[in-house]
């Protein structure tokens, strides 16, 4: 629920409110991670490392529902809708373009909410391993979650063998989004 700019506010103020949006969204990903069966059996260190490398990607999946690829608009939870052009003033044009493309591809798969949630769990445990200590434990958790996702999707669409592979193909897209855009700058006012 992000109160991004009514026209009257400066782009700096827009930037601040946009930056503020991320804080609650990140906290929700942390809570989501703790609810993933098996996540809290990982070491605390590895939980933190996975969250640090995977949260941006999970957010990208979560934000997809805000994007309307046909209309090229973004509707925040408070109901405010913004065209891509108006949001370009935030200087996040390239990220927004990438988000529209990604949400179009993911949206076309027509996942149910529970399938999307399980996919987000897979996204998180598939994140970069560079800081992970017990790689085996993370790989085992990832394997379990992928198996659960596959059986959920194939049980609902027994005659569609393409959906699951298409879904897994979104993982590299998310990695690219992360590598290209997680260094975007946010600004916070300190009074």
């Amino acid at each position: 629920s992000c109160p991004v700019a009514p026209a009257s506010r400066s782009s700096q103020e827009v930037w601040e409110s946009f930056s503020q949006c991320f804080t609650p969204a990140v906290k929700e990903v942390v809570e989501f991670a703790k609810s993933i069966p098996g996540f809290q059996t990982l070491s605390q260190h590895d939980q933190v490392m996975l969250l640090k490398s995977g949260t941006f990607q999970v957010l990208m999946v979560r934000f997809c529902s805000l994007f309307d690829p046909k209309e090229r608009t973004v509707t925040f939870l408070n109901g405010q809708t913004y065209s891509l052009a108006s949001l370009r003033a935030l200087g996040m044009g390239s990220l927004l373009d990438a988000m529209f493309d990604f949400s179009e591809k993911l949206g076309s798969l027509g996942l149910e909410p529970d399938e999307m949630a399980l996919f987000m769990a897979v996204v998180l445990v598939s994140a970069d391993r560079s800081g992970i200590v017990e790689v085996g434990a993370v790989e085992q958790l990832q394997e379990n979650l992928i198996r659960a996702l596959r059986s959920l999707i194939t049980s609902r669409r027994p005659d569609d063998s393409t959906l699951f592979p298409k879904l897994l193909l979104r993982l590299p897209d998310l990695r690219t989004l992360n590598n290209q855009h997680s260094d975007k700058l946010l600004a916070f006012r300190i009074d």
């Binding site: 930056s19 942390v30 969250l51 941006f56 700058l185 946010l186 006012r189 009074d191």
Partner: peptide, 25 residues
């Protein structure tokens, strides 16, 4: 004058996660 703290999205995310786990220790 208003001062600003500027950080990358990745650093902001890391900061929140570190805070959360520190608080819940």
């Amino acid at each position: 004058p208003k001062t600003h703290r500027v950080m990358t999205l990745a650093d902001h995310i890391s900061h929140i996660i570190t805070q959360d786990f520190a608080r819940n220790q």
